Amino acid sequence: MPYAPSDGARLWYEETGTGHPILFIHEFGADHREWEDQVRFFSREYRCVTYAARGYPPSEVPTDPRLYGQDFAVKDAVAVLRHLGIPKAHVVGLSMGGFAALLFGIRHPEMAVSLVPAGAGSGSPRQEQAAFRAACQARGDKLIAQGWPGELAEETGNAPTRIQLRKKDPRGWAAYMERLAEHSGPGTGLTMKHYQGERDSIFDWEPELRRMRVPTLLAVGDEDGPCIETNVWLKGVLPNAGLWMCPRTGHAINLEEPAAFNREVAAFLSTVERGRWSLDATG
């Protein structure tokens, strides 16, 4: 298996296709396999790179809680790109991966051709942050103790922002649930406690976001309630961003509506590559 060395963990990765590189960063409740519909579509013209986050086999699962968190999420994305000799890429992330994509753009704008943070922002609004963090700590402890099969997987797959996938695509939902049950309890539990439960609010980054000029496509489903406020705010703060809201869609936007997601992202990447995304004279 191919692995990229990072700080405290080796990361399993997969690359498909040739051309301009796209790095895909997965969400908490999934893994590198969630991007299959995107890899099949974009690898016709792009070099697609997916990887499993630390704590998600076949990547390594560190047992030290200090080896998890938002800083490691960005370091891991950089480590994969550098291991593959990629100086600059489009970066596409969902949820936890969308959060990482935004922070990647702030910290390493020279490595980002563009950003597509999809479904990012859960727990970021000030009035929600304390409760969100407490829930992450409790859920992380439960995952470490119990693992995924059974109660926690069913609760996740039938959550208000995920039930849309089951309604639209029962086979796709069943495949998602099968993958979910295979995740490492300790790995995802530590991720939940120390990445999800200790990460910044995106609102904390306002000064940095106002200065970040990386072309950005914000993507969110109109039934992804925990993320809508943050994405509308981001549209007003980021100087070079567009906002696409997909109707009748929940959190896992790329799984629920793969054709629409691929179409919108492809149009965005094309516009960026032609130098036509920015509408101001300095962009």
Rank of each mutant, 00 (worst) to 15 (best):
residue 5 P to I: 00
residue 8 G to M: 07
residue 10 R to D: 09
residue 10 R to K: 15
residue 12 W to R: 11
residue 16 T to R: 14
residue 16 T to G: 01
residue 18 T to M: 03
residue 19 G to I: 03
residue 21 P to S: 08
residue 23 L to A: 06
residue 27 E to K: 00
residue 28 F to S: 08
residue 30 A to G: 06
residue 30 A to C: 06
residue 32 H to T: 04
residue 32 H to S: 15
residue 33 R to T: 15
residue 35 W to D: 08
residue 36 E to V: 13
residue 37 D to M: 09
residue 38 Q to F: 04
residue 38 Q to K: 01
residue 39 V to D: 07
residue 40 R to H: 07
residue 40 R to M: 03
residue 42 F to V: 04
residue 43 S to K: 00
residue 43 S to D: 04
residue 53 A to N: 14
residue 57 P to I: 09
residue 58 P to T: 01
residue 60 E to L: 12
residue 62 P to G: 07
residue 64 D to H: 11
residue 64 D to F: 11
residue 66 R to D: 09
residue 67 L to D: 06
residue 69 G to Y: 10
residue 70 Q to K: 10
residue 74 V to W: 11
residue 76 D to W: 01
residue 76 D to S: 01
residue 77 A to K: 01
residue 77 A to P: 09
residue 80 V to W: 05
residue 82 R to C: 00
residue 82 R to V: 03
residue 83 H to Y: 06
residue 84 L to M: 06
residue 87 P to N: 01
residue 89 A to V: 05
residue 95 S to Y: 09
residue 98 G to M: 08
residue 99 F to D: 12
residue 102 L to A: 08
residue 104 F to I: 01
residue 108 H to L: 03
residue 108 H to Q: 13
residue 109 P to K: 11
residue 110 E to T: 12
residue 111 M to L: 14
residue 112 A to N: 05
residue 113 V to A: 10
residue 114 S to M: 08
residue 114 S to P: 11
residue 115 L to S: 06
residue 116 V to M: 02
residue 118 A to V: 05
residue 121 G to I: 10
residue 122 S to Q: 12
residue 123 G to W: 10
residue 131 A to K: 14
residue 133 R to L: 05
residue 134 A to Y: 03
residue 135 A to C: 02
residue 138 A to E: 08
residue 138 A to Q: 10
residue 140 G to S: 10
residue 140 G to F: 02
residue 142 K to I: 02
residue 146 Q to D: 13
residue 148 W to T: 10
residue 149 P to Y: 08
residue 151 E to I: 02
residue 154 E to W: 10
residue 155 E to H: 04
residue 157 G to F: 08
residue 157 G to R: 09
residue 159 A to L: 03
residue 160 P to M: 04
residue 163 I to Q: 14
residue 165 L to G: 02
residue 165 L to Q: 01
residue 167 K to F: 06
residue 170 P to M: 11
residue 170 P to D: 02
residue 174 A to N: 09
residue 179 R to K: 08
residue 181 A to E: 15
residue 182 E to P: 00
residue 185 G to K: 04
residue 186 P to F: 06
residue 188 T to L: 15
residue 189 G to T: 12
residue 190 L to Q: 14
residue 191 T to V: 03
residue 197 G to Y: 11
residue 198 E to D: 13
residue 200 D to F: 15
residue 201 S to Y: 14
residue 202 I to H: 12
residue 203 F to I: 04
residue 204 D to S: 15
residue 204 D to T: 11
residue 207 P to C: 11
residue 208 E to A: 15
residue 209 L to C: 08
residue 210 R to S: 13
residue 210 R to K: 14
residue 214 V to R: 00
residue 215 P to Q: 07
residue 220 V to I: 15
residue 220 V to N: 08
residue 221 G to W: 01
residue 235 K to L: 15
residue 237 V to R: 14
residue 243 L to I: 11
residue 244 W to T: 04
residue 248 R to Y: 08
residue 250 G to F: 05
residue 252 A to D: 05
residue 252 A to Q: 03
residue 255 L to Q: 12
residue 256 E to M: 02
residue 257 E to P: 03
residue 259 A to G: 00
residue 261 F to I: 00
residue 261 F to H: 00
residue 263 R to A: 13
residue 264 E to C: 03
residue 266 A to Y: 08
residue 266 A to V: 00
residue 268 F to S: 04
residue 268 F to Q: 00
residue 269 L to N: 03
residue 270 S to V: 00
residue 271 T to A: 11
residue 275 G to V: 07
residue 276 R to S: 06
residue 279 L to H: 13
residue 279 L to S: 14
residue 281 A to L: 14
residue 282 T to V: 12
residue 282 T to E: 12
